[in-house]
Design a protein around this nucleic acid. Structure first.
Lengths: 251, 251
DNA sequence: CGGGGGTTTGACGAACGTCAATCGGGGTGG
DNA sequence: CCACCCCGATTGACGTTCGTCAAACCCCCG
């Protein structure tokens, strides 16, 4: 919305994708060039729009280039559980090729832009993009690691620990995608959404956030989170970066 | 321990594996024969033994042929979260081939017997076992579905609902593997283990089980669970069989 | 006859949810 | 430019679920 006369100053749309994939595996110049071309087939999604409906075969594979989405399931009585977030740079539907019915819905939480990832998947399938192949495998592995962390949070951590742990996870992922720094990052979520990720009520999320603020561990202002004492938060919540979990897999 | 003079009456060790894989994909006679040969390289694990240590590259791929194990993580202060169970017929380490560090430990809960699954993985890799390839893909998919169910249980269900939901899941999985029937199945778990799966305290698991018994929904006696009113349990816990989640994937 | 692991029970407290009211800020139509 | 409005954040009061501590119990085995 500010880039009308400054296209060069606007962050290039594929940057988050490239940044993220490069942390997962080394990419060749050709592979980076391929990623840059994908900026073409872009698609816009309004907040609340369902990118993938639970129980239906997913759309073609895509990358999120801006905005936030989530994987979720809604119970018949309206209770909702969010499994995790899709941030800029993340892929969706990259796993299974033709696509069996989705196990969870994917919903845009903010305005979201995605690009078609089909060219990448073709190049990978044709053996023309070994770096991308490895990066996508690593991404799948990382997603699984995040899901396991989530289970521990929900099953064995208090509200206080859950919030701290979750904020650290977001900070880490967003920094990789090129948003924010070691302490500060965008957080465009309502407390209702936080509640549905963390398995808490809205009111209790609110109170827990207040406690963290009162103790000068975090600050929250208009969509921006600041971790005032990241290491304190880590020790409170037993947070560890998933980086160590990565390793070369099959060549 | 009873089969000393009646080897033919003892259940054949590979039965659970074959039963389960056949519900995931049609298998050829050759594939079934291959599975039967694996009965050779069997391995025994005592209760408490760590089949895979968290953070270390996993052993070679295996199938569980008898006994129960679990995937788990232990926090530094001793809190434990169990991610799910490995029942007879289930595989472990079938996904990634050389094997990056395991994201969770795998521990035997009872005496466990496993067989080496390497021959199967070789046949699959060589393109000689399309049915097994598909079955193993489906197994991975099913494991993911179970993990998502688990997240919903922990994040959005009450203790009462969690226990009901979990018992139904076990009944279903065990019946597929050839144990128990539509109402009755072996349950060789202490309440401490149940607590660590369900994200509850031992005491509260106990009270919840009592409530279910008092209401004549279940019975528990010496390692056997009986679901007296399975459909009541389903409606209480919003349980749905994951069967529908399955579909043909890439050919 | 003891022991030991697992189960059950009671009493109590802390964590978390629910209900309902209020507050606050940004957007929008006049 | 301003008043209004609406969604989300905040707060208080209260109830429930669930955890903790500690003791008793039970059963199988040695």
């Amino acid at each position: 919305m500010t880039a009308r006369f400054t296209p060069r100053l606007a962050p290039r749309p594929m940057d988050p994708v490239m940044r993220r994939l490069r942390t997962l595996a080394p990419l060749s110049e050709d592979e980076l060039a391929l990623l840059r071309t994908m900026v073409e087939r872009r698609e816009r999604h309004a907040p609340g729009e369902e990118l993938v409906a639970e129980g239906y075969p997913p759309r073609r594979p895509r990358f999120v280039v801006s905005g936030w989405a989530c994987r979720q399931r809604v119970m018949p009585d309206g209770r909702r559980q969010i499994f995790g977030f899709l941030l800029p740079g993340d892929g969706l539907g990259l796993g299974e090729r033709p696509g069996p019915p989705a196990l969870a819905g994917i919903v845009a939480l903010t305005a979201v832009e995605t690009v078609d990832a089909e060219p990448v998947m073709e190049a990978v399938a044709a053996g023309r993009a070994p770096g991308l192949k490895q990066a996508i495998e690593q991404a799948a592995r990382l997603e699984h690691a995040l899901l396991l962390d989530h289970v521990v949070r929900l099953g064995r951590q208090t509200a206080y620990e859950r919030v701290a742990h979750f904020l650290l996870e977001l900070q880490h992922r967003l920094e990789i995608a090129g948003f924010g720094d070691a302490q500060r990052f965008p957080l465009p979520l309502t407390q209702e959404i936080l509640a549905d990720v963390l398995g808490l009520s809205i009111v209790h999320v609110n109170r827990t956030l207040q406690q963290l603020r009162r103790e000068r561990l975090i600050e929250l202002r208009s969509g921006v989170a600041i971790l005032l004492q990241p290491d304190m938060l880590s020790s409170i919540s037993d947070y560890r970066r998933p980086a160590l979990a990565l390793r070369k897999s099959a060549s």
